[in-house]
Design a protein around this nucleic acid. Sequence first.
RNA 1: GCGCCGAUGGUCUAGCGGCUAUGACUGGGGCCUUCCAAGCCCUAAACCCGGGUUCGAAUCCCGGUUGGCGCACCA
Length: 584
Amino acid sequence: MDRYEQVIELAKRRGFLWNSFELYGGTAGFYDYGPLGSTLKRRIEQIWREIYVIQEGFMEIECPTIGIEEVFIASGHVGGFSDPLCECKQCGEAFRADHLIKHIVEEADGLSNEELDSIIAQHNVKCPECGGEFGKTYEFNLMFKTQIGPGNGRKGYLRPETAQGMFVDFLRLARYYRDKLPFGATQIGKSYRNEISPRQGVIRLREFTQAEAEIFIDPRNKKHPNIQRFENTLLNLYSDEAQDMGESQIMTVKEAVSKGIIAHEFLAYQVALVNHFLQRVGISPDKLRFRQHRKDEMAHYAIDCWDAEILTERFGWVEVVGIADRTDYDLSAHANMSKTELSIYIEYEQPRMVEKFVIRPNMGKMGPVFKGKAKLIAEALKALPKEAFENDEIKVSVDGEIFIVPRDMVEFAHETIKVSGENIVPHVIEPSFGIDRIFYALLEHAYDEEVVSTKDSVEHNDEETRIVLRFKKEVSPVNVAVLPLLTRQELIEPSKEIANRLREKGLLVAYDDSGTIGRRYRRNDEIGTPYCVTIDYDTLKDGTVTIRDRDSMQQVRAEVATIEEVLYDMIYRDKKFETAGKPV
RNA sequence: GCGCCGAUGGUCUAGCGGCUAUGACUGGGGCCUUCCAAGCCCUAAACCCGGGUUCGAAUCCCGGUUGGCGCACCA
């Protein structure tokens, strides 16, 4: 069994991850999060919220998981997702069917699959790799399609990313933030991609959870006001250049910016923030790197793009976060599609006096001549370039009709006007997290097997393996296990009382009185519970309990009276275990 | 979507045409128990689905589902 299998086996057994629809045989690409899994996932998301929503101030919004067709036409997903593919029967190589016949037909992209098939057959197109014959063309679309409403209602798609919702709401968001850049919005939610062949467990899913932030910034100023926070933070960077050499480099954020390795300060801050988040939830720093997209793999509109990658035993480096400067691509695309300006008005510090060529149609003269069309013609005149007014007669076209306007019907002049600002289309910085992948990486990095001696190891010379999930305390799905040492009424009652007090404090508590104490400790090690509180007969005498530390298996005796504060502080406030009570 | 290999209680597994289907661990109940998977008793729990071959199929064949690997794909 390799590490992946061990982790998945444990996750299945203990209620972290289950195959969806198992009762009916299961379906690839879908996973259920069990009781501990959904708790762990929620705690990861909660830390993400704390960082992005509360600290950075990028408010969370919630958009539908179904989007209408226009949204995905604008975003490029409709076009970019439905490539006609066909495969060579001989070597299995897949090709874009329309590309294969480009040299035969002019407009190859508009053709149906059947038309493509017949052209391929007619012209006897063979596989460029091996000369083999092609199979049928099929549609390759990663979006789930659906119908909104009955009959011939609107076409809809399950969203392939949460990002579009935030672009579509841009004007509302800008208003909410009182038209001041930079601002950002975030969304945590499900996205859907109908993967051809999902594998690798939770690494590639058809329904998955994304946490995305869309940060709108002034394209002329990509500095970050709070960059000093991370200036000296060390990042493991696998830059375009480093990839040529095959080795990543560790350097400070400051250095990465000043050497131009990361395109600009704002992006560098985001890379550092991702680094901070991943380590806080429990990713090992030595299994984390940031890989820059190569020039040829980067989307054409992006300036710079970095993936956070996490090292896993079976899958190698797995991309878990993408951080990109998407420029004004998305806003411009939606502006075009919706015919609505998506920009922010930015006032200059000082109003500027600008020379301008002004056109003033004389409506007194034009009205009698052009009657009802006069107004439209005047509008069209205003849109003409300066050169159009050099002749005596000005040609202008309105609704396909050409009008000749005598020059003396129009006045024009160079004027100096006051301009106090301009409309700017913000650039978008997008950190996009795959929560499910982070979840898996966390399990794998937390998983540990340790050889320990058992109770009767002296007699039997026995050793056994202890499985421990070494979760960070603030993410582990159970904070504290409360265990009566023996299954006896006089111990069970005070135990339940203590458990209730811890719950009132907001801690995630598991109460367990079945089996021997050793068995219960191991059970809790396996699900990563950082502390176990055990109630014994001394508790009844002197009001103390033992607290056992998951990682060291050491125990201290602590006062029952303040037990909830002590545990809370150890879990959330970095209080040291040794200070919790007297060593046992 | 193609090729190769697999699928047996919750988990891991034995089985190789002749069952009433191994075993371990886990789970539940009990006895005993004063801190790291102790012991004893009891108990629950499985042949992925559908066809076929055969007197007889967990076992052989076909199809599907599903998992792994390779190819392709990953906007």
